[in-house]
Design a protein around this nucleic acid. Structure first.
Lengths: 201, 201
DNA sequence: GTCTATAGCCAGATAGAC
DNA sequence: GTCTATCTGGCTATAGAC
């Protein structure tokens, strides 16, 4: 295996372990076993558990952020944007379902990891979106709503069902297959639900 | 200090530490320091870290569950129920803001903690609520919606802003005071948003 | 019940042979 | 680059004096 393959191999194993157990619960030995290499190799390539964790965390952010950015920055009508967000984001998270829980937990454990990552990346785009929403309200095209709440609503309904999967599965009494079907339905359901609430008929 | 005071004192300290650092990140020494007692006392009263953790976890569930049960079981019109839920639950979580993140993380770490806690407590109530929603759809009083999605929507919009607080604060560029104001607004905003989406006008 | 001291274990990190 | 063996520190848990 080449250096880069080994490095990637380690990162993949570390991602799986860190995302399911968190920084504190993860064990270097377990990561090494998963990567089918020696524990010393982890340190050879990444120096420390902390550095390896940071690599995993940055990778997780880099999977989530560009798609978000793409959807938000694209110039198109608000309702289209909402549909693209719920469809695109729920599909993406489906492929990386551990990421939201992982990010949420690690950020609460240590909020300053973020610092200004998001501000720098999204500040301008969100300002534009706020203007777009406020204009539609003023023109009477949608109900009155604060942009902040609209954004929180859409994001919450899209992501929370992944984060709270064990609770919802239990409360709604669904098995894995049934719950997956619910998640798929939400790609369009959430957008419909939001747009119905905004529309003035 | 009496036995029970000491026991409660330990539980309070453990709650604070476990809820901010999680089971794996918490240190018995830190809990002892916070409770201003000796580390050996923790073991005298709770035998092991695991047992102490379970006490904290059960307390967290027992704070969240009865209110949920109360709101869901009360016989009243659906829209009233939605208003009571968003108002009551957001207020409650405001007083215990670490709990949702704590529960979510620990459940993902170890999903079988739940087992049938929720099913037994809420199975019947949710069935009744499903019937209530389905009847309103059939009578043409609200838009067609699957009860599961409606429940997920309301819960997600109420709870996710607490879980994702560091992210939203950063993205929306709010300080603590401004973010708290947003959370307070949501007690009525979420209910309005949901009811607007359901109404047929 | 409360403390000090310490046993015993396990994890992250490194030394050093190959 | 890759491995084995080992160091070092920190953590849970307990023994035992008071």
């Amino acid at each position: 295996m080449s250096n880069q393959d080994t490095e990637q191999n380690i990162l993949n194993a570390a991602t799986a372990i860190f995302q399911s157990k968190g920084m504190d619960g993860a064990r270097m030995q377990e990561i090494a076993d998963k990567a089918k290499i020696n524990k010393a190799m982890l340190h050879y390539y990444y120096r420390s558990k902390q550095k390896l964790f940071e690599a995993v965390f940055k990778t997780a952010i880099s999977i989530m952020a560009p798609k978000l950015r793409e959807i938000i920055e694209k110039e198109e009508p608000l309702f289209d944007k909402i549909r693209h967000f719920t469809n695109g984001y729920i599909s993406l998270i489906n492929k990386h379902s551990y990421i939201p829980t992982f990010i949420v937990h690690e950020l609460n454990r240590n909020p300053h990891i973020l610092q200004d990552v998001f501000i720098k990346q999204f500040g301008d785009s969100f300002d534009k979106m706020k203007v777009q929403i406020n204009e539609m309200v003023e023109k009477g095209q949608i109900r009155s709503i604060e942009p902040e709440h609209l954004i929180m609503n859409v994001v919450a309904m899209s992501i929370f069902p992944f984060v709270a999967k064990p609770i919802f599965k239990s409360v709604l009494q669904k098995d894995d297959k049934e719950y997956q079907e619910l998640l798929d339905e939400r790609k369009t359901h959430v957008a419909d639900f939001v747009i119905n609430s905004l529309k003035i008929k």
